[in-house]
Design a protein around this nucleic acid. Structure first.
Ligand SMILES: [Mn+2]
Ligand SMILES: [Mn+2]
Ligand SMILES: [Mn+2]
Ligand SMILES: [Mn+2]
Lengths: 218, 218
DNA sequence: ACAAATTTTTAGCTTTGCCTAAATTTTAAT
DNA sequence: ATTAAAATTTAGGCAAAGCTAAAAATTTGT
């Protein structure tokens, strides 16, 4: 597989997960930042190689083999993202571009040992699950923090209220996108939460918790 | 720079160091595992980009700019080799192929942080020096262990005597290619050496020491 | 010095991945 | 049911990086 083929397969995988129908030529072109005619060319090649199912004008879906391939690339991408954040002090939002390159390095041993070096992580810095070597992985869902069950852990991936006062509050309390947060306990009385973030326990109101999105596993 | 251009520049650098004259088309072709006609094509392109000095039929040398580029690729290659050995438990002889790919990843921050993560290593697993960010590096030389001055450290890169008994001896004493060895002290009496290898001190005869090659810095 | 051998370059073709412009098919609107 | 719009494919080209075969330059051997 060439680098370009791998990128196409990965994009078809990501686009396909949303609709569950077949993926359109134009949507691929948009994500690949290329022209629809180029996409058609590539789709034909992928189809001949048995990576996708394709009928003219009817869009494209991944074959079994194509899905396996996609998951292996996603696995590599997310492992490298973990590496960049955990080992090289990259921040949450700097990793994508580099991982986009690293995901194409060919060496099975490299991926296995990287996985081990990182302690077999389950999720990447964006809270997305990392497929196992044989392509299995837990689904992740996005939830408001106040709806996360006690005991669960997730990655902070967004805010509902993006007003300056709220953002300032988050900043003051050192809560940032990409942080891992786990819910320790919930007060019945006012719905306020005890959470653990960066190894410290803090107490936040329901109002705060209902404006923070977490991505959690399962 | 494309991946291919980078590989050519690096090969021209390595070939040029030996002779100090200009590098021949055929020698590049051999190292690149490609045909001389392809090399001529590439040389023209590199010449137009100012990376090499080229006159038809006269071979090629790196320009100032080409040398800087080559050193940056060599730096990346060797840093990744250190990473693979030190962090991912690769052995000495497994790293080259993977580093050949990793050296082309484009991200200045990645290289800087990798360097830091590895503790700013001076030499790679083969004993070759790692150029600094601005292209400076110590020269390395190959010496028989018994000729290495006290206090110096080097990487075991070869044997003079490759007879089974000697190799068996090395194996039994856990001395292998790629190991870092430093000379602690030398006995005047019999020329035997106290060396440190894998954090343990051992005592070896002059006969052993005069059959092991070390690559040392400066 | 000069023919032979070797090295290097040129010419012409191939593949990959991309492009524009034109044709075709599908979908949406009246 | 037509027609208009949008999506998709085809046709024809281009640049990168490679190849083979043939031509040209350089080097070598006598
Ligand atoms: Mn990619
Ligand atoms: Mn991610
Ligand atoms: Mn390379
Ligand atoms: Mn090396």
């Amino acid at each position: 597989m060439t680098l370009s083929e791998e990128d196409y397969i990965k994009i078809i995988y990501h686009l396909g997960k949303g609709d569950l129908g077949s993926v359109s030529t134009n949507s691929i072109a948009e994500r690949m930042e290329t022209k629809p005619s180029s996409v058609t060319d590539m789709i034909k090649k992928l189809s001949e190689k048995g990576l996708v199912n394709y009928k003219k004008y009817q869009g494209v879906t991944l074959s079994e083999y194509g899905l396996k391939t996609a998951l292996s690339i996603v696995r590599k991408h997310r492992l490298w993202e973990v590496f960049l954040v955990e080992k090289l002090e990259f921040s949450w939002d700097e990793v994508h571009e580099v991982a986009e390159q690293l995901e194409h390095i060919k060496s099975e041993k490299l991926v296995d040992m990287l996985d081990k070096h990182l302690g077999f992580p389950q999720i990447d810095p964006h809270g997305d699950p990392i497929p196992s070597k044989d392509g299995e992985f837990k689904k992740s869902i996005k939830r408001l923090l106040n709806e996360v069950p006690i005991g669960k852990e997730g990655i902070c991936v967004g805010v509902k209220d993006s007003s300056p006062p709220f953002l300032k509050f988050l900043d003051k309390n050192k809560i940032a996108l990409g942080d891992s947060i786990s819910v320790i306990d919930k007060e019945e009385f006012d719905g306020s939460l005890h959470i653990k973030i960066r190894e410290v326990d803090i107490h936040i109101s329901d109002q705060i918790a209902s404006n923070l999105y977490l991505r959690i596993i399962e």
